[in-house]
Simulated scan of single mutants.
Amino acid sequence: MWRNIASNALSLSIVALIVLGGVIGWGKREYVAEGPLETAICLKVETGSNFTRVSEALDAQGAISSPSIFRMGADYSGKATELKAGSFLVEEHASMEEIVDIVTRGGASTCGTEVVYRIGVNAAEYQVRELDPATQSFNLVAEFDPDVEAPADYTRVRGQPDTRYRVAIAEGATSWQIVDALNKVEFLSGEITEVPPEGMLAPDSYEMRPGDDRADLIARMRASQEERLAAAWEARDPDVPYESPEEALVMASIVEKETGVPEERGQVASVFVNRLEQGMRLQTDPTVIYGITRGQGVLGRGLRQSELRAETPYNTYVISGLPPTPIANPGMASIEAALNPDTTDYLFFVADGTGGHAFAQTLEEHNRNVARWREIEAERANQ
């Protein structure tokens, strides 16, 4: 009898182990399997939260199939104590394993509220934006000038720990404009007392944290521009007529200020390169304007004939070759265009009324393009 009892007990133990193994295997498969979420969501994890609360929130939003498997998976992977506070984008059909990785990885929040301080060529502004997780596009909540009182929408999100911050620099902004605007950023610290060399600040979008030092941001911009320029110089067309990367940067800044149409940059660069190679003057208005303003704001009017005739280091209607320094901070596309311009015979260009330019090889053809542009200007003035 005892032998039968022992045999039955052993059989039951084996069955139990098989069942347990099956359950564990099923749980593992559920943990790594595609999740039930039909539309991406923004998951907010509060400071001091835990995996129980997170699993309940995910279950309520239909993002996981089993809160208990979610928690056990976090325990088994050794991540149960690594939960990070913030707002995190959970993609549709994300597995429980992927979600655990998202909320324990750390770093900046990936969705929710974003404050962007935009520095353009004409002005700077704050933007408060909210990410729509379903479309992964931002909805503008508020925008305002740094010199006016901040609206309630900004004040509301300013103290939230999961609010993200960025400083976005537009291509073509001058170093003075960037420094002037950065010294007005409310969420940064320190003060920039010296304007960096023109052209040496990389236009880009920079992730920031409240209290970050302005000088550190300037250092990041300079390091990035130096890296970009060095890489482009190494990959340059060997026939470009520059003696140094600094000269290429001057040309890139002129290209940046002459066109906002991306596909035209190579053509515009080719015009100026062709002029340099033929000993012609560059004759470009943006350099003359920089000589007047020194990059400190916008001229706000047309150039006078006296200014076009004045002999200054930046008046390319009078001087030969390049001006002594860049006239703005060019983006990577303009740097690449300056160092690898299109191969053309163009020597002239003028606005064509579409936002782009009409290019010409001869002065006669250029004069016809200018005449057409004057007609367009006259028609617009009479509308």
Rank of each mutant, 00 (worst) to 15 (best):
S320P: 04
V250W: 05
Q283G: 13
R368T: 05
G356R: 15
F88K: 01
N315A: 11
M221G: 02
A9T: 12
S109C: 06
L140G: 12
M280N: 07
A269G: 04
T193Q: 01
D342H: 12
P245Q: 07
A333C: 13
L299V: 08
P324W: 09
A371W: 09
Y206S: 05
V261C: 05
T110L: 02
V298A: 08
D75A: 11
E92Q: 09
A85E: 11
T284D: 08
D101S: 11
A57K: 15
Y290Q: 09
V121C: 10
Q278P: 01
A328D: 11
M280C: 11
E258R: 05
V32N: 06
V115T: 05
T259A: 13
V261K: 10
Q278C: 01
Y165I: 00
R214P: 14
L10Q: 08
D147C: 00
L282K: 03
R53N: 08
P238G: 02
G355A: 14
K79N: 03
I192R: 00
V103D: 14
D216A: 15
E377H: 01
R380T: 01
V116A: 15
L322I: 03
V350S: 15
V271Y: 06
G27D: 06
S320E: 14
M221A: 05
K28W: 12
E375I: 00
I18H: 01
N382P: 00
A168N: 13
R29G: 09
S253R: 07
S11G: 14
F70Y: 07
A33R: 03
S189P: 07
T344C: 02
T113A: 14
E243W: 01
F272M: 09
M96A: 07
I24C: 01
A360F: 13
M332D: 15
N4T: 05
I18F: 08
S66L: 02
S95W: 02
T52R: 05
L37W: 08
V298W: 12
E247W: 00
A232V: 04
A168D: 08
P245F: 12
T155G: 02
E114M: 15
G297E: 13
G48F: 12
E194S: 04
E365G: 12
T344M: 03
P326I: 01
F51W: 08
L299G: 06
A142P: 05
I69S: 09
S87T: 11
L182A: 03
R3K: 09
L363F: 04
V157L: 11
G120H: 15
S189I: 01
M280I: 03
Q305W: 07
R156P: 00
S66C: 02
A231P: 09
G120C: 13
G86L: 10
R164Q: 06
I64Q: 04
L140I: 10
V15W: 06
E307M: 14
P262G: 04
